[in-house]
Nucleic acid binder design. Structure first.
Lengths: 140, 140
DNA sequence: CAGCATCTTTACGTTTACGTAAACTTACAC
DNA sequence: GTGTAAGTTTACGTAAACGTAAAGATGCTG
């Protein structure tokens, strides 16, 4: 079976972040490792959380946003109707933002492809000129 | 035909950013409006640039990154082989990052859907309990 | 038990991307 | 001419997300 606890360094090297960052996330209320003495011990739950935090960052989520989502999520079982409605609203909001991102990505991909083509043909052009120069030199 | 020049306020309201931001982008070397007197005049080229800047931001690009891409792009015609290779490398890098983002988005979408379902059923549960409470009160 | 590696807390520093305020011109509107 | 609305420059302030340095606790290792 897979590991159940992790040191801060385990997580730092697995996800390629600094220990400073991981402690900072705890400071901001996004992670709650237990302690053995004064050393932090992370559960696989904590590990999942960290993964989510980092993925959120890659998608432009602030730490505050991720924290809010975590909190809403944690309160889902036993939450009041009002809390659930807030969660639903947040989910809808995020879904729409993701749609927008998908659009952005699709457009940028097209443009990158076109840029790549233009770049390639510019390089091809340079190579041809080079060849021509060589042939002229041989013709001497 | 479509407009060819724009005031700073035109762009600000069209793209929903502050004039401060637009001037800041110029300060950082991403925009180069002409002047009429001391007032900035933006071309439709500038407008496209701004749109690209903002889309870049939504995808997590820093202003410095966007600037670098613009500069590489602008140097494409007449660029040296080394510059073209750098551009090609950047393009490849960005394309890979976009693939990663697509993965991230796909996973997050799945999780949001699942969260939404759980949220909905929690709300449904609350409604049922409410109904039950009402019926018991009627039974009195 | 001395040393070193790894953990910890505390705290000040840094970068990015603007916000905000002050003080100043221009350009119409009345 | 006089607001006043929109533009300008200059400059200091700020929030987020850490970086970095200092100084001490802890645990193995030879």
């Amino acid at each position: 079976m897979s590991k159940t606890t992790f040191s801060i360094r385990d997580l730092a090297s697995e996800f390629d972040v600094t220990t400073r960052s991981i402690r900072f996330y705890e400071d901001q209320g996004l992670l709650f490792p237990t302690r053995k003495g004064q050393t932090r011990i992370y559960s696989s739950q904590d590990r999942v959380r960290l993964k989510l935090i980092l993925r959120g960052k890659r998608l432009g989520f602030s730490l505050a946003e991720s924290k809010e989502l975590f909190e809403l999520w944690d309160q889902t079982p036993g939450g009041s109707m009002k809390q659930l409605e807030r969660l639903q609203a947040k989910i809808t909001e995020k879904k729409q933002a993701l749609e927008q991102q998908l659009n952005d990505i699709a457009m940028l991909q097209i443009e990158l492809d076109s840029a790549e083509a233009r770049c390639q043909s510019a390089m091809q052009e340079l190579l041809l000129q080079e060849q021509k120069a060589l042939q002229e030199q041989n013709a001497k």
